[in-house]
Simulated scan of single mutants.
Amino acid sequence: MALVTLAGYPASGKTTRAAQLEAGLPGLLPDHLSVCVVSDESLKISPSVYDDSRTEKPARAALFTAVQRLMSPTTVLIVDAPNYIKGFRYQLYCAAREMKLRVCTVYTVATPDSCRKWNALRTDNRAYETATLENLLVRFEEPSSMVRWDSPLFTVPWNEDLPTTAIVDAILSGSIKPPNSGTISVAKAPSDALHVLERITTATVAAIINAAAQTEGGGGVVTLPIATDVQIQISLPARHLTLSELQRLKRQFVTVHKKAVTLGTTERGAVDWTEESVAQKFVTYLGEHLKP
């Protein structure tokens, strides 16, 4: 349904805001929607992982995997984590787009001094080491409403109420971005596609040469026996067709479609590598390129 990403300085109140959303959203959402919070704490990720990049990266990967697993058309998923790197927020945004979920970002704003004070008051083993806290404060990349992965952006100072109603509007009626083209799975051609492509085009050329010989260059519509149970009609031009001309067009056709097979760029929604489909595509190609 939606992905709500919290961002802000460490110890700026993100967990408090996540709890407020988790408590307030169910009464404002349709009954079929549920609210779920995924956080470092729920995944038992210690604040100490941010002491070193070698431990931070796998922790962030674990968070991303959990987010992907919990995304659902019937779930409002709240991500309560540092999310201080814009590249990671973009990664979350792309995952949400792939699932066709609405997105929004809640930016909890507090001064660095306030964050230092609140971090020092923590007694639940969730406090950051002083050096780690200072490092995260420096590295924090502020969300911006000007970039699509942070929009719509709700900036919430620590001493102001959460705009729950506006967030609900974004969740229920915000635009759903189509999946990024780079993340769309492309249908793969079958393993024997290249063999079928070569065999059918060769058989088609041979059938055209035979048909042209029978019509003695008169042209017209003829039926080509391509393979077992495969017969295709083609309109031949009223002139003598040479084998070299047909072979040249065959090579062009095969080259284009061989690239599609090897690179996985076959046309979406119309991938059909049966003998009849390949023969029909080739005959259509010939009809467009054979000169009268």
Rank of each mutant, 00 (worst) to 15 (best):
M1A: 13
L3C: 04
L6T: 07
A7H: 04
P10W: 02
T15C: 07
T16L: 11
L21T: 06
V38F: 09
D40W: 13
D40Q: 13
I45Y: 11
S48D: 14
V49P: 00
Y50D: 08
D51G: 15
T55K: 01
A61I: 06
A61L: 09
L63K: 03
V67C: 00
V67Q: 05
V67L: 04
T74R: 10
T75E: 00
V76I: 06
V79T: 02
A81G: 11
A81H: 06
P82Y: 01
N83S: 03
Y84D: 04
I85Y: 01
R89E: 02
Y93S: 03
A96Q: 02
E98I: 05
T105E: 07
V109N: 08
T111N: 01
P112D: 04
C115H: 11
K117A: 09
K117I: 08
W118G: 08
N119E: 07
L121K: 14
A127W: 11
E129H: 15
T130C: 14
E134T: 15
E141N: 10
P143I: 11
S145I: 12
D150M: 13
P157S: 14
W158F: 15
E160W: 14
E160Q: 14
T164L: 15
A166L: 15
D169Q: 14
A170F: 10
S175I: 12
S175Y: 05
K177M: 15
P178G: 08
P179W: 04
N180I: 12
N180L: 10
I184V: 15
S185R: 13
S191L: 13
D192P: 09
L197G: 10
E198R: 15
R199V: 13
R199F: 09
I200Q: 04
T204I: 07
A206S: 13
A207T: 09
A213Y: 15
G217F: 11
G217L: 06
G218D: 02
G218A: 15
V221R: 06
P225H: 10
P225S: 07
D229Y: 09
D229I: 05
D229V: 06
Q231D: 13
Q231H: 09
I232C: 01
L236M: 02
P237C: 00
Q247C: 06
Q247F: 00
Q252V: 08
F253L: 01
V254D: 00
T255M: 00
V256W: 01
H257M: 03
H257R: 07
K258H: 01
V261Y: 01
T262H: 00
T265V: 00
E267W: 06
E267Q: 09
E267P: 05
R268T: 04
R268A: 09
A270M: 07
W273M: 05
W273R: 05
W273D: 02
V278W: 03
Q280P: 03
Y285V: 02
G287V: 00
E288L: 04
H289P: 00
P292M: 03
